[in-house]
Simulated scan of single mutants.
Amino acid sequence: MADEFTVRFWGVRGSIPCSGPDTAKYGGNSSCVEMRCGGRLLVFDAGSGIRPLAATLQGPQDFDLLFSHFHYDHVIGLPACGPLYNPKTTCRIWAGRAGTGAGVRQVLSDFMSAPRFPLTLDFFRGNLSFHDFTPGDVLDPGNGIRIRTAPLNHQDGATGYRVEFGGRAVCYVTDTEQVEDGLDRTILDLIDGADLFIYDCTYTDAEYPAHKGWSHSTWQEGMRLADAAGVKTFVIFHHDPSHDDAFMDRVAVDAEAARPGTIVSRDGMQLAI
């Protein structure tokens, strides 16, 4: 449908992919989220979750790939994205300027080079274009989609996104550390009144003091942000690899009690906005 707006999670872990029976329920792939706005496909981050996403895409594709940042857990799946090797694919790749000031093409070229990987970026046969922006810019990819961006509090820099389509808004805000003096005003402005708010919930409030300075946040902080900004649905994302299914089940119970309707993301989960 022309006005359909859906979100599907293909990788919900942070830091490093993890697999095994203890993480089978919520999944072990690292960050990758698919959004479909009408007929337009947007993909956020290329963690290991982009591989199962790519397996569902048959033939040449036309899509946008937007990076929050370039830490390995968010780019590690890029070489396994099959459609990029199809010469009839068109992909627009977006990212805020990295902490080094390097553009997205240079950063990805460095990643896909010896001794880190045997294939270079030139092995992709698709029609790839690279788009750098400054976090805070508003992106206009077309098809009635408007994307607001904002800088996040993360080592080496990161970008938060607000995708607006058909009078609805979904915010993808991963890899950011909570601030010392109250709630992060930049995030509050970005997520104000959003229909869906996906947030870096690597830790719990009890765990956070031992990980202060590690550039991540807690699900309780995400809930405080959601409440203050009038968000409709809050989504817990970027699970720590040490948090197995039993741990995440407890988080789900506590989160539902604190804010009914809160969702703990799982690999393969799809939501209609």
Rank of each mutant, 00 (worst) to 15 (best):
R105H: 14
A102N: 13
T89H: 02
L84Q: 07
L108F: 02
K88I: 00
L108A: 05
K88S: 15
G96W: 04
L78H: 06
G82R: 07
T90N: 12
W94Q: 03
T100R: 02
A98R: 02
V107A: 10
Y85R: 03
L78S: 10
G96F: 01
L78M: 13
A102K: 07
V104T: 03
Q106G: 10
A80D: 13
C81L: 10
C81K: 01
S109R: 01
P79A: 09
N86L: 15
T100L: 00
G103Y: 02
V107E: 15
A95S: 15
P79Q: 03
L84D: 02
P83C: 11
A95V: 04
R105Y: 13
I93Y: 07
G96I: 03
R97C: 11
V104Q: 11
L108R: 01
V107Q: 09
C81V: 13
L78G: 06
G96D: 06
P87N: 06
N86D: 15
I93L: 09
P83M: 12
A98V: 03
L108N: 08
L108Q: 03
R97Q: 14
T89V: 01
G82N: 11
G99L: 10
P79V: 05
R92C: 12
G99C: 04
V107P: 03
A98I: 06
I93D: 10
A95G: 09
A98H: 13
N86P: 00
A80T: 07
V104P: 08
